[in-house]
Computed example of a mutant assay.
Amino acid sequence: MYFAIVAIDRPGASDVRAKTRPAHGEYLRTPNPDVTYRLGGPLMSPDGANMIGSLLVIEAQDLETAERFAAGDPYRKADLFAEVSVRPWAWGTGNPDKG
């Protein structure tokens, strides 16, 4: 099952994002037996100039596993986010697994 993780940064936390970004990238690249990271990237301000959050799509067995993965993200541990949602997601168009 796929899950979308949407996280919005706390205002004024760009320094936390910058300092934690290498660890966040490593977390996503490290193989996880319970989760497959599918895609993701930063959410941007309306003018496209600043990162203001994150969007990740993962594959996991259940919501509990997806939430545990989201909680382990170095960004989350560094208290970067004001809010985080983890929701089941149905991958429609553009799914590389479906051709």
Rank of each mutant, 00 (worst) to 15 (best):
Ile8Thr: 11
Arg21Val: 00
Arg10Trp: 06
Thr20Ser: 05
Arg76Ala: 12
Val57His: 04
Pro46Thr: 04
Gly48Pro: 13
Ser85Thr: 10
Pro96Gly: 05
Glu83Arg: 12
Ile58Met: 07
Ala66Ser: 09
Ser14Lys: 11
Asp97Met: 10
Arg21Asn: 00
Arg68Val: 08
Gly40Met: 05
Asp15Ser: 14
Leu28Ile: 03
Met1Pro: 15
Thr93Asn: 15
Gly92Glu: 05
Gly25Pro: 00
Ala13Phe: 08
Ser54Asn: 03
Lys77Ser: 04
Glu83Asp: 13
Val57Tyr: 03
Pro22Val: 02
Asp9His: 01
Asp97Leu: 12
Ala78Glu: 12
Ala82Arg: 14
Arg87Ala: 13
Leu43Cys: 09
Gly25Thr: 00
Met51Ala: 14
Ile5Gln: 05
Asn95Gly: 06
Gly99Met: 13
Pro88Ala: 10
Asp79Tyr: 07
Met44Leu: 15
Arg76Asp: 10
Arg10Phe: 04
Pro88Glu: 13
Thr65Ala: 09
Ser54Phe: 04
Gly40Tyr: 01
Tyr75Thr: 01
Phe69Trp: 08
Ala70Gln: 08
His24Asp: 03
Thr30Asp: 00
Ile8His: 14
Arg10Gly: 03
Asp15Thr: 10
Gly48Cys: 12
Ala7Pro: 04
Ala78Arg: 13
Ile5Leu: 14
Thr36Ile: 09
Leu63Asn: 04
Gly40Ser: 08
Leu80His: 07
Leu28Arg: 01
Ala13Gly: 04
Ala7Gly: 06
Trp89Lys: 06
Val35Gly: 06
Leu55Asp: 04
Gly92Ile: 01
Phe69Asn: 04
Ile52Tyr: 04
Pro96Asp: 05
Ala90Val: 11
Gly25Asp: 00
Asp34Gly: 07
Arg29Phe: 00
Arg17Lys: 10
Asp15Asn: 11
Ala82Asp: 15
Ala18Leu: 14
Ser14Trp: 09
Asn95Met: 08
Tyr27Asn: 00
Leu39Gln: 07
Ala4His: 08
Glu64His: 12
Arg21Phe: 00
Pro31Arg: 07
Phe81Gln: 13
Pro96Tyr: 05
Asp79Gly: 09
Tyr75Phe: 11
Val57Pro: 03
Asp62Glu: 14
Ile5Tyr: 05
Leu63Pro: 01
Val84Asn: 04
Thr36Tyr: 07
Val16Leu: 08
Pro42Leu: 14
Thr65Val: 13
Leu28Ser: 02
Thr65Ile: 12
Arg38Leu: 09
Glu26His: 02
Met1Leu: 12
Gly99Glu: 12
Met51Lys: 11
Ser85Leu: 10
Asp9Thr: 01
Ala7Met: 11
Asn95Tyr: 05
Asp47Pro: 13
Asp73Arg: 08
Gly25Glu: 00
Ser14His: 10
Trp91Thr: 06
Ala23Leu: 06
Met44Phe: 13
Ala18His: 11
Val6Phe: 10
